[in-house]
Design a protein around this nucleic acid. Sequence first.
DNA 1: CGATGGCTTGAGGGTATTCAAGTGACGTGG
DNA 2: CCACGTCACTTGAATACCCTCAAGCCATCG
Lengths: 250, 250
Amino acid sequence: MGMKTTAANKCQSHPATPELGLDGIPLFNGAAPAFLDKLKAASSTHDYAKGHVVFMQDDVAEWFYVVNSGWVKIFRQTLDGDEVIIDILPAGTLFGETELFSNHSFANSAEVVQDAKITAYPMSLLRNQISADPSFAVKMLEHILHGQREQTKEIEHRTIMNASQRLGCFLLRLINVKKIGPVVLHLPYDKTLIASRLGMQSETFSRALARLKSDLGMRVRGATIEIDSMDALISYTCSACSNAFPCAED
Amino acid sequence: MGMKTTAANKCQSHPATPELGLDGIPLFNGAAPAFLDKLKAASSTHDYAKGHVVFMQDDVAEWFYVVNSGWVKIFRQTLDGDEVIIDILPAGTLFGETELFSNHSFANSAEVVQDAKITAYPMSLLRNQISADPSFAVKMLEHILHGQREQTKEIEHRTIMNASQRLGCFLLRLINVKKIGPVVLHLPYDKTLIASRLGMQSETFSRALARLKSDLGMRVRGATIEIDSMDALISYTCSACSNAFPCAED
DNA sequence: CGATGGCTTGAGGGTATTCAAGTGACGTGG
DNA sequence: CCACGTCACTTGAATACCCTCAAGCCATCG
């Protein structure tokens, strides 16, 4: 856990707590204490190195997970060997929970991309609670629907935004607050990884960043980026999107 | 309702019944009769001409809908005026139901693209039933999760498939069964519309179709397409996808 | 009959990808 | 301590793919 991760947390607006368990997740806010206790009792937490595969597409889905620290990518692999990254999850994120019913097998794969601590909880407890507790079922629905809206945005972005706009959008989401003045931020993980997260090659990423530098007067040194005019970045990026700027309501 | 629509129904593997209400929708299979009665009593059905806007992004979401006949597109519009089509819905499809909670406003817009009969049901009844009937809440979750998996596929397709592959995938989904021999099918709606459904321009669609013709020996006359070798189409299309062929489990 | 809308085709340009080479930072091992 | 390999990143050149603009075809319909 080097400087990079610390910087990441600062800019991701996720509190820099070393351990993020169930308590930080909105889905479980206000859940029955007995349920949470059962989950915690049945959980198991492990440290994994970069490269560890948490689950593969078509694996039987018996557990769902929480990222306590580090980063995990959710992706799919084609027969050709190409890979599409669906999302890259920061600490404090739930994953695998969407395979609740679906014939009990995962639709995506999950892999650690930066050394991570991950907690696994049995899916059966989640299923049971949904059937038993209507108010939790409602919270679960809200949780899933929120994820679905994020995915719809993703479709829009990959369809009509060009590379620099997608990158601009990524940067704006990192900042995530309405700041007018100059901003300094740090990229949370490797540029190569951001590139595939945004559905482009790393060369394209590099050129997109160069374009933002020249067009918007951004300064880049390694993973550190200085932005003079948020307004310029916002108008450059968000004009190609259906959401008004402070679009990250999460 | 001309020849075109009839042909469409035949190939979409949706039964060609003139009226498709709640009863044909898996979500409501086995739902409490009292609930269904209440829904039907509170519903209102209307015919709409092509171009009618059912709801707009950010509208208050007080109703959800069922397409009884015709076609409805779900889309988003950017500040630039560009439009991204998320999906095009055939008869027998539910829509608008994903805005159950989300601050009660729609994240997408919906517009009739081929004269349609549409039934509206009050969202409040759906909300109530989910809170009151755990088994229905479970069905609702399954329904939403299924939709989310479809969207994930969509992200994958728009990220790594080229135009002809996306078109090939669209054709395969129309056929939707494991057929080995030659197949004749009819496009369900305008090519222009299919093009934007697949995230490409109509010119690109035309050229993609031409490419399938020359590369795979397909014959095209208007909206009628003859395919000699399903295997050739499948290997051409599905090698760029993470799903094995008969991927339409719906 | 002209107008319209859906579709096709050609030409040109822009964006992203691929292939290739090169840089710089970092860690390992001699 | 330096040599070396590795890895992330950058840059250039060539190419592939898709988009835009423009023209033209064809069927439908008033």
